[in-house]
Every structure is written in structure tokens, then in C-alpha cells.
């Protein structure tokens, strides 16, 4: 595998750095892991499209040398879907944040999952709206402080992978920015999956989540990830009591019994053209 420096030289667009992420932000770790995964999978730059929504995470698309788009808040998935329909041969990777994906873009999420469009969705879950300065998202843990929750949040948060699974997901995975080898591994598997894959990455926002919630420095947020994430194999052996407050990482669900959407659509084209032929014959 290439070193990070080599990856930067190969995949970063010259002149686009420095990035806008704060010191201690996990987004760079995720982008680095994504490049490792793309490189390890041997994908050609021309055949990769990175489509993002709006937010800190979504700025990632602009830094890297692929076919890229930084679109609108919540709308990365429909735009990715349209692109995939036009160009099923492309590896379309969608980058989104917890707010982008589960709040304003929540409707698109469940339907992209349901259709099993061949997209790889990477959800940068930093538990907060970072770009706008620390408002709570649907993935902010209940009881957290946010600039729009000065008296703590009272809303239960989504488990976005359980949500996706209920919507009919064919691939779900989770990793953290502490568990980079796991992250690279699930990204590679998600890219390879022939259908819709959703990968939740738990990442830290020291500036706008950590500070408000007195979690503290970036390293402490990483330590929190280390202490709370449990590899799936170990997770299976835990009872409910031991699981409390923790979460599993790795590939959590995968099935291959459903056709990828653009491939299923090819059958529509076949049926329509056969019917047309019959009509004109």
C-alpha cells in the first residue's frame, strides 16, 4: 500500500490544500482511508466520481483528483443516482455528513437504499453540524449540548445503519477514525459490493462537539472511539448489558440476493424494446 505522502501526491489536486478542516478533525483521516481503499482496489481516477452534499465532510470532494461534485445540502444521493444511471460503469462514491444525510437528505437516503443503486455512501458522523458551528443533528446523542440545545437535546438519535437496514440495505458497515485499518477494509468491501453500500464513520469534531460537551482534546475523542467501538465478532458475543453504550464496527450486514438498480433497469429496456418490436412487427 502507498504511503500517505504518495497517496497525497497521486490523488490530491495540486493547489487545493490547505483544507478547511480544524485541527483534530477526523475528516482528513476518512478521506485518507478512502484514498487508500480506492488505490488498493486499483480504480482508475477517470472511473471514479465523488459526489458530496454540503457541510464539513462534503468539502472533501474538491480536494481529490476524480470526477467530483460538491452539490447541495442533502442532495448528494439523487445527483449520484442520476449520474450512476447515466454512467453505470463509473464507481460513484457519495460523501455526506450526519446532518446532510439523515436530516435534510433523509428521504433520499431511505429510497437510495431501497432501490439498491450501485453507490458507495460514506457518512461522516461527527454527531453535530460542524460547518455552521455546532447545532444538533439527528445523530447527536440524546442529552448532548449543542448551540441549538443549550439545555441539552431531548431527541433520541438515529442508528443510521439500523435505519438503512430497515429500508432494505444490502450492505452496511461502520468504522471509526481511530480504527483506520477497519475503515479501509470496510470502504474496500463497500466499493466492491454490487449494490448500495452505506458506511458510517464515527469521527470527532473537537471544535464544535467536543468543546461544548466537555469531551476535550482530539486525542480524548479518539480514545472515546477506541473504548466504545467493538469489532463485530466480539460484539456478537456480548450480552445486552455489555453492549450498553457501545457500538459494533466492521461489516454489519451484507446480502447479494438483490439486483443492483441500473442492472435491473437494463431488464426494463429489454422488455420495452421487445414489446416495441412486437408492436411494429
Amino acid at each position: 500500500m502507498k504511503s500517505m505522502e504518495e497517496l497525497v501526491n497521486v490523488y490530491f489536486r495540486p493547489g487545493r490544500l490547505p483544507h478547511l478542516w480544524c485541527p483534530g478533525c477526523g475528516n482528513g483521516v476518512i478521506l485518507g482511508a478512502l484514498l487508500k481503499a480506492i488505490d488498493a482496489e486499483g480504480l482508475e481516477k477517470d472511473n471514479v466520481a465523488i459526489i458530496s452534499g454540503i457541510g464539513c465532510s462534503s468539502r472533501a470532494s474538491g480536494y481529490v483528483d476524480f470526477n467530483t461534485a460538491n452539490t447541495l445540502h442533502g442532495r448528494a444521493l439523487p445527483i449520484s443516482t442520476g449520474l450512476k444511471m447515466a454512467r453505470p460503469d463509473l464507481n460513484v462514491i457519495t460523501l455526506s455528513g450526519d446532518g446532510d444525510c439523515s436530516a435534510i437528505g433523509g428521504n433520499h437516503l431511505i429510497h437510495a437504499v431501497r432501490r439498491n443503486v450501485g453507490l458507495t455512501l460514506v457518512v461522516f458522523n461527527n454527531s453535530i453540524y460542524g460547518m455552521t458551528g455546532g447545532q444538533y443533528s439527528p445523530l447527536t446523542p440524546i442529552g448532548s449540548r449543542a448551540t441549538t440545545a443549550p439545555y441539552l437535546t431531548i431527541e433520541p438519535s438515529f442508528d443510521i445503519l439500523a435505519l438503512a437496514q430497515a429500508a432494505g440495505a444490502t450492505f452496511t458497515a461502520r468504522a471509526t477514525t481511530y480504527h483506520v485499518p477497519v475503515l479501509v477494509d470496510v470502504l474496500r468491501k463497500g466499493i466492491r459490493h454490487d449494490g448500495f453500500s452505506i458506511i458510517e464513520v464515527v469521527t470527532g469534531c473537537p471544535t464544535n462537539f467536543g468543546r461544548q460537551n466537555k469531551i476535550g482534546a482530539p486525542a480524548l475523542m479518539m480514545e472515546w472511539q477506541k473504548d466504545h467501538a467493538v469489532p463485530r465478532a466480539a460484539w456478537e458475543k456480548l450480552d445486552d448489558e455489555a453492549r450498553r453504550g457501545k457500538f459494533p464496527i466492521g461489516v454489519l450486514f451484507e446480502r447479494t440476493d438483490e439486483k443492483e438498480y441500473t442492472k435491473a433497469y437494463d431488464e426494463i429496456i429489454e422488455r420495452a424494446q421487445a414489446a416495441k418490436k412486437e408492436e411494429t412487427a
Partner: peptide
């Protein structure tokens, strides 16, 4: 559309309708 090799999608809402259109157009269609 499928008769001529094109593709049609009934999307989940109006926003996704034009969103898929923009994505497809970026793909040259």
C-alpha cells in the same frame, strides 16, 4: 425512454427528480 435505450425514474420526491436529472446531465446524457 426504455424503447430508445433511455432511462426513466420515478423519484421519491420533486427534489430528487431534478437531482437525478442534474446527475445524469453531468454524466453527459
Amino acid at each position: 425512454l426504455p424503447e430508445v435505450g433511455g432511462k426513466f425514474m420515478q423519484t421519491e420526491d420533486e427534489l430528487a427528480g431534478i437531482g437525478t436529472v442534474i446527475g445524469a446531465s453531468m454524466g453527459g446524457v
